[in-house]
Design a binder for these strands. Structure first.
Lengths: 161, 161
DNA sequence: CATTATAATTATGTTGCATAACTTTATTGA
DNA sequence: TCAATAAAGTTATGCAACATAATTATAATG
């Protein structure tokens, strides 16, 4: 390092802050990247008045008509109590309904409404478009490899944890 | 789908909930994977009484001695007010000190203490070991490709956002 | 030297997530 | 059969991570 830079540092700290050690941890790199994706997705969903959680719930209900709240919570990997408000919101906006199951009056069968399905289609398209922007310039092979790596990490965790 | 399965579904919802549509979004896959990494890292750091945030701050201070809180906040991508309590905690535990800068009495020069450096070395080793477990069975090439993809996503976001 | 900007802080609110406890309904087994 | 147990959804509550606005002390600027 040059003398001038050292003197500047003595006054006001490092000229440029390096996160080399942290970046060496793959988990840290993934956190940074995920933050980027999440903030982009949030902005994409904002015009539809959806958050990641309400969006995920809507998609899962469309794809799995009649599922119970407990099944939805498990699929979303969140606790049941936290799902209640999410389903409340989707129901209040008439995007889904809580149908009773014929043989179990404790549970609800969650189903999408017409409005919900229409919103689903619009948002799916918007999210796909935004994702394509984020993934621009990344080859299909590289992307497939990256996704394999992620699934493998998930599998390793289940094996351990 | 078989008739028996359909009848079962009428009673109690889908037998297995699929998240195929969501998994098709790379961001969703990344969120799931990141959750796994984060929970593993949290467990790894718990014996040292560190969270991801305090750990990241400690590493950055070790690597960038004398940096200011504002620089640390920027490097960690969090708002300055939220960093105050993190630095408070590290200082209270005598892992770092808030030194005054000679020429700017508004700012602090953050520096690691001996205890902080010792904790740093222990935790770095533990985190590396845990990460190796999570990455077991993943080839070096595949991992490098995955990391390239992530950095590229980050770059694309800066270009857009 | 008055204005403006910056570093750190305080106060405050939101969101995502967790746990405990409760109500209603199903299931189990003595 | 019916008492005990379990399950689905809910309510209440708390914590952690983040954001914004406003405040204080100091520095930089015109």
């Amino acid at each position: 390092m040059k003398k001038a830079a050292l003197e500047l540092e003595a006054k006001s700290g490092p000229v440029a802050v390096g996160d080399k050690t942290l970046r060496a941890f793959h988990g840290y790199q993934m956190k940074r990247t995920f933050n980027v994706i999440q903030s982009d997705l949030s902005r994409t969903l904002k015009p539809f008045d959806l958050r990641m959680l309400t969006y995920s719930a809507l998609v899962l209900i469309v794809d799995n008509p009649g599922l119970r709240q407990s099944q939805l919570a498990e699929a979303m990997d969140i606790e049941r109590p936290n799902l209640v408000l999410i389903v409340d919101e989707l129901e209040r906006r008439d995007l889904i309904i809580r149908d009773r199951l014929p043989n179990d009056r404790r549970a609800y069968a969650l189903k999408v409404t017409l409005a919900g399905r229409q919103l689903y289609q619009k948002t799916i398209a918007a999210v796909k478009a935004h994702e394509e922007m984020l993934l621009e310039g990344i080859g299909d092979d590289a992307l497939a490899t990256a996704m394999d790596v992620m699934r493998r990490i998930e599998k390793n965790h289940r094996r351990v944890g």
